[in-house]
Design a protein around this nucleic acid. Structure first.
Lengths: 212, 212, 212, 212
DNA sequence: CATGAATGAGACTTCATTCAT
DNA sequence: TATGAATGAAGTCTCATTCAT
C-alpha cells in the first residue's frame, strides 16, 4: 500500500513500540508485573491511552512482549560478555557474577528480571539456551561432573535468581557474590580449589548491561 | 449456609477465620496473589463478601495473614519431619526432598508456596529460621564447609524453589530430586561420595504435608 | 442465609431492578436500543454505575431483560383489554386499535415497542401467543377465512407496527386508525360491511396502558 | 492493494466510493446499522481507514449515503420488474412477491433492507413513490377500494417488511408468499376470487435483483 | 488522494470497601 | 456478627476522527 520509502513511518512505528516496551520495563521494576496498568503504561511512554492498542491487542500481549524483549536483551548481553572466554566454568561464572553485579547496581532492573523470570516460561527457556551451551562446554572440558543437565540448569538459574533476590533484599555480606558462584561451581562438581581459582578472576571489562 | 453444628460462638469465629485463610490459600495456588479477589474469597469460604471485613480490615491484611499462615505451616512441618535425625546434612536433605516430593504430589500447593516465598520477605525469614539451625548443625559436624551462612541459605532455599518450579513446570527426569539435593550438598562442601551416601537414604515415613 | 423476614431487602432489590428496567425503557424510547449506555442507564435509574452490574452481568443481559419486561407488560395489557369481548374479530380490532391509540398518546412508548419488537424474537412470540388465540376464535366463529395462520399473524402484527410507525412519523389522517383496522380485517377475510361494523365500535373504557 | 487496472483517475474515485457503499451494505446486512464501524468498513472495502474520510465527512454521512443508495437500488429494480404490466393490482402483487422471493434467496440482503427501511424515513418515502403510483392505477381501474391512500401504503409496505422478517426468521410455510399477497390485496378491497386470480400468476422472467 | 499512526473521549467492567438491616 | 446491596474509583478497551507523510 505504501510504496514510498519504508524508512520514515516504519521507524516511527518501531520507535513507539520500543518506547512502550521500555516504559513497561520501568513499571515492572517499580511495581511488579501484576500492577502494570495500561493507562499508566501509556503515560510512562508518553503516548495516548489508545495508542497502546495499536501495538498490543490486550493486556496479556503486553506482558508477553515485555518478557520476550527482556529475554532477548539478556541473552544478547550474556553472549557478548563471555565472548572471548573458552573455559566453560569460567563462562558460567561470568554469567552469574554479571547478573549479581547488575543487581547491586540497579535494583529496579533486578526486580524486573526476577519477576519476569518467575512468571514467564518463555523467558526461562531463552536464558536456558545460553546456559546449556556453557554447561556442556564445561562438561566436555571435564570441569563439571553433574549427572543431569536439567538439574544443573535449575541449580545455576535458581541460585542466580536467589542471589539477586538476596542482594535486592538488602543483605550485604562481603564477598557474597564470589561465595555464591563458588558454591554453584562446587555443586556442579568442581573441587574447592578449582572453584576458588575460577571465582578469583575478575569480570571482563564491560560489566554494565545497557538496558535496551 | 454453615449448617454444621457450632459448639461455641468463639469457635465459630475462629473457624470462619480459618476457613477464610484456607480458601485464600486455594486461590493463591490457582491464580497467584495478584488475582485474589475478595469476592471470590468469600465465595470459596462460604461466607458473604461483607463478612470478610469482620476478620480483616483490608485486602492487604488478608494477604499478610495468609503469608504468615503458610509460613507457620511450613516451619512446623519441617521440624516434625526431621525430628529424630541428628545428622545436619541429612536434615537439610530431608527438608529439600520433602518439598520436592510434595511439589510432585500437589502442584497447587507448590505453586502457592513458590509464589508466597517469592513475594513475601517475612515468609523467607520464617523458612530461614529452621534452615539456619540445620546448616549450623552440619557445619559443627564438619559435614559442610561453606564460607558464609547467608550464601548457604540462599543456595539451599533458591535451589529448592527452583527445583519445585521445574517439577511444577512438568519436567520429569528420572532421579531429578536426588541429583538436585546432591548438587546442593556438594555446593555446601560435601564430597561426591558423602553427598551420594546422604541422598541415597529414603525419607522418613510421614511424607505427606497435610495442608493447614 | 437471611432468616429475617424477606420483606425489606427483597423489596429493595426488586425496586432497584424495577427502576433499572423502567429507566432502560425510557432510554430505549428516546435514543433507540443501540444507544443504551449502561452509564446513562445508571444515571437515569438514580443508581451508581456499578449497581447495574449487580442485576445484569453484561450489556446484552440488559437488552434481553428489557425486551422481556416490555413483552410481559404488553401481553398482560392486551388480555385485560379484550377480557369481556367474545367476538374474535372484535378482539383483534381492539388489540390493534389499542396499540395505535397508545402510539398517538405516547410516541416514546411506541418507538420503544417498535424497536424491541423488531429486534427481539422473544418479544414477537410473546405477542404472538395472544394474537393466535384471537385469530383462532374468529376463525371458529366463521368471521375470518384466512388460509394460513402464520401469514395471518404476520399480517396483523406487521400492519400494527407499520401503523404505529406511520403515526409516530407524524402522519395524521382523519380516521387513520379505523381504516387500518378495517383493511386488516378485510385481509383476514371479512367483507367490507362486516369490517365496518366491527371497526365502528369504540374501545372498551380503560384505554391507557400504564407503562410498567 | 487495488491491483485492477484503473482506466481513469476519476473512475477510480467513483469506484472507491462505490466500493465503500457496497461494503457498508454488506456490514449492515450482517450486523445492523448501529454496529457499522468505520474501521471495519475500511477493511471490507479494501482501503485504509483514513481514506473513508476522503469520501464522507463523518460516520453519519456514510449511513445516510448508504440509505440513499439502497433506496435508489430498490426503486429502480421495482420499476423494471413491473414495467410491462398494466394491471395495477398485478403490479403491486409483483412488487411484494419480488421482495419476498429475494428475501428467501438472500437473507443478508433482506435483513439489510428491513433494517434500513425501519430506520430511515427517507428510504420509506423512496419506496412509497413507486408504490403510490401502482395503488392509484389499481384504484382507477376499480380493482382496489381503499378509503385512504396513506393507510393503503402503510398496509402494503409493512406487510411486505413483516413477511420478509418472517421469511428471514426461518418460518417456511408452503405457499406463504401467495397467501400474504392475497391477504394484502383483499385488505385493499379485492374479492377473494379476484385476489386469487392475480396471485396465481407467476412473476415476470427476471426475478433476481442484482444488488447494486 | 491514500495512508495508517496517533489521539482521546467515552463506553464497558471489576472490585475493594462501606453500611443499613 | 453476618449479610449483600450499593458505591465509585480505576482499569480495560473501542472507535470516530485528525494529521503528517
Amino acid at each position: 500500500m505504501v510504496k514510498a520509502p519504508l524508512t520514515r513511518g516504519h521507524k516511527k512505528k518501531a520507535r513507539t513500540r520500543q518506547a512502550l516496551l521500555e516504559a513497561a520495563l520501568r513499571i515492572y521494576a517499580q511495581k511488579g508485573i501484576g500492577e502494570l496498568a495500561l493507562k499508566e503504561l501509556a503515560v510512562e511512554a508518553n503516548v495516548s491511552n489508545g495508542t497502546v492498542y495499536n501495538y498490543f491487542r490486550t493486556r496479556e500481549e503486553v506482558l508477553e512482549a515485555v518478557g520476550l524483549e527482556l529475554a532477548e536483551d539478556l541473552s544478547q548481553q550474556i553472549s557478548i560478555l563471555s565472548e572471548a572466554v573458552e573455559n566453560g566454568a569460567h563462562r558460567v561464572s561470568i554469567g552469574i557474577k554479571t547478573f549479581m553485579r547488575k543487581a547491586e547496581e540497579d535494583a529496579d532492573w533486578a526486580r524486573s528480571v526476577i519477576r519476569v523470570f518467575q512468571l514467564d516460561r518463555g523467558m526461562r527457556s531463552a536464558v536456558a539456551f545460553n546456559l546449556r551451551k556453557d554447561l556442556q562446554t564445561a562438561k566436555n572440558q571435564k570441569l563439571f561432573t553433574y549427572e543431569c543437565e536439567a538439574a544443573a540448569m535449575t541449580l545455576v538459574a535458581s541460585a542466580t535468581i536467589g542471589a539477586m533476590t538476596t542482594i535486592v533484599d538488602g543483605l550485604t555480606v562481603p564477598d557474597f557474590e564470589r561465595i555464591m558462584v563458588k558454591m554453584v561451581l562446587m555443586g556442579l562438581g568442581m573441587s574447592v580449589s578449582a572453584a576458588d581459582k575460577i571465582t578469583a578472576m575478575d569480570l571482563p571489562r564491560q560489566t554494565g548491561l545497557p538496558l535496551s
